[in-house]
Computed example of a mutant assay.
Amino acid sequence: MRQIVASPVEMDGKGDAQHYSGSAPFILRDIRFRQLVSRRRRFAWSIAGAMLVAYFAFILLVAYAPMKLGSRIKTDHVTTWGIPVGLGMLLYTFLLVAFYVWRVNTVYDVLFKTLCNEGQK
């Protein structure tokens, strides 16, 4: 019985392709493409990990030190520490996403286009 593959590039844990037919496009058989996919996947997971660490740290701060976030920055002001910490989380998220988009557009997309152009020659 033939196994049905959900996508043309089905990767195993090592980043090697499991199924390639002779009719697969050149790009899918190229070892450089598979390495590129593996590198991009590692990068995406590291960004996701950084985001998870930051958000879990924020949630733990809310859970275990709510009085710190609820305390005023200065005694004569109404602004609490929760406001700049929350805004810092938003800024961190924006910067992380901007870094991801910049890196994908300047590194991975360029390498992919180069591989595609070489395959069409």
Rank of each mutant, 00 (worst) to 15 (best):
F26V: 10
I27D: 02
T75V: 11
F26P: 05
K74Q: 14
V78L: 13
Y108K: 07
M89T: 02
P66E: 07
Q35E: 15
T75N: 07
R72W: 06
Y92K: 04
V78G: 05
L28P: 01
D76P: 01
D30N: 15
L28W: 03
A65L: 14
W102I: 12
P84N: 02
R2A: 15
F58W: 06
R42P: 05
Y64G: 08
V110K: 11
D16P: 00
R42C: 12
W81L: 01
R29I: 03
A24K: 07
T93G: 06
L87F: 05
T80S: 08
P25W: 11
L69I: 04
R42G: 06
R40D: 03
G86Q: 02
R103N: 11
G86Y: 00
Y55G: 03
L95A: 13
I59Y: 10
T80R: 03
W102V: 10
G22V: 06
E118A: 14
P84I: 02
G88A: 09
L69G: 02
S38I: 04
L95H: 01
V85P: 00
M67F: 11
E118W: 12
G82Q: 00
G86D: 02
I83M: 05
Y100G: 01
L52C: 13
V101L: 13
W45N: 11
P8C: 06
S23F: 13
R41D: 15
F112G: 00
V85F: 04
P66I: 03
L95E: 01
P84E: 05
A57K: 05
L61G: 05
V104W: 02
G86W: 00
K113G: 01
I83H: 10
G22H: 08
M67V: 10
I73W: 05
F43W: 04
S7A: 15
S71A: 15
R40S: 10
R34N: 12
K68Y: 09
T80E: 01
S21F: 07
K14R: 12
I59W: 10
M11D: 07
K121A: 15
I27K: 01
L52K: 03
L69M: 14
A54Y: 03
G86P: 01
D109K: 12
A6I: 04
A44C: 10
V53C: 05
A65I: 04
W81C: 03
Y64M: 11
L95W: 04
F43P: 00
I83T: 13
M89H: 01
G88D: 01
